[in-house]
C-alpha cells in the first residue's frame, strides 16, 4: 500500500469543497461527509486528479438512519445515507464518502458518468432505499418487480399485504416483529392485479 493517507485525501477534497467534513464513526472508521450539491465536484476530483485517481468504485450503497441510536439530536436524523467506497487501482488507496439525503426530498446527483459501475449500484439503492439519482440514464427498479410498492430497506417499511393476490404471511407487520400499531400507515396498498405470467 503506497497510496495517499486518508488525511491527505481529505485535505485535497477540502480544497474543492469547503463543506466537506471529515468524520470518524464511533469505532474510528474515517470518512468524508459531502453535501449532495458538492458531490459531482468531489467525485470528479477523486476520479480524475492524477494524484488521487480513484478509478474503481468498490461499492455504492446506503442505509436508513431513521432508527440509528444517538441520532435523535442531529437535524438530519431521518436521512438516508448514501455511501461511496472508492479505491485506486493505480495508487492502492481508498476513501469513503457519505452523502446524506433528506427523507422527504431524497435525491442525490448520479456518479454513473464517472464510474459506469454505478449504473447498477444506483439502481439498486433507488430500488431498496428510494434515493433518486438525478441524471441517471435509466433509473428503474432492479431487484423488486416494477409494480412493487415501497422501498424495502427503509426502516419504516412494512410488510406488504399481498402481491398479485397472494397474501403475505406477515401482512402489514413491522420488521422488528411488532404487530401493527395505532397510527401506522396503511399497509402497502395492493396494486391492481396485472396479467399473471410472463410480462
Amino acid at each position: 500500500m503506497n497510496g495517499m493517507t486518508f488525511e491527505a485525501i481529505a485535505a485535497r477534497i477540502a480544497q474543492v469543497c469547503d463543506e466537506a467534513m471529515v468524520v470518524r464513526s464511533e469505532n474510528g472508521q474515517p470518512f468524508v461527509r459531502v453535501p449532495a450539491a458538492a458531490l459531482p465536484r468531489v467525485a470528479a476530483l477523486l476520479r480524475r486528479d492524477p494524484a488521487l485517481l480513484c478509478d474503481a468504485l468498490m461499492d455504492l450503497t446506503g442505509y436508513d438512519r431513521l432508527k440509528y441510536p444517538g441520532n435523535e439530536a442531529s437535524p438530519a436524523n431521518d436521512a438516508i445515507a448514501v455511501v461511496y467506497l472508492l479505491f485506486s487501482q493505480q495508487h492502492h488507496h481508498r476513501v469513503m464518502l457519505e452523502v446524506q439525503a433528506p427523507r422527504a426530498l431524497c435525491s442525490v446527483p448520479t456518479v454513473s458518468g464517472l464510474w459506469p459501475a454505478a449504473l447498477y449500484f444506483e439502481r439498486e439503492v433507488f430500488d431498496l432505499l428510494g434515493v433518486q439519482f438525478v441524471g441517471h440514464p435509466s433509473l428503474e427498479r432492479i431487484l423488486c418487480p416494477d409494480d412493487w410498492v415501497g422501498h424495502p430497506l427503509r426502516k419504516d417499511y412494512l410488510y406488504p399485504a399481498q402481491y398479485h393476490g397472494v397474501p403475505h404471511l406477515r401482512e402489514g407487520q413491522h420488521f422488528d416483529g411488532a404487530p401493527r400499531r395505532q397510527g401506522d400507515p396503511e399497509p402497502t396498498p395492493t396494486p391492481a392485479p396485472t396479467k399473471k405470467g410472463h410480462p
Binding site: E26, N27, Q29, M58, D59, Y68, P69, L85
Partner: peptide
C-alpha cells in the same frame, strides 16, 4: 462496537465486500 466497517475478501466470483453498520 457501534459504528461501521467495510471489509472485502476474495471469493471465487471476485471481491465479496461486506459493509456492516
Amino acid at each position: 462496537p457501534k459504528g461501521f466497517v467495510h471489509c472485502r475478501t476474495e471469493a471465487p466470483r471476485g471481491e465479496m465486500g461486506y459493509f456492516l453498520v
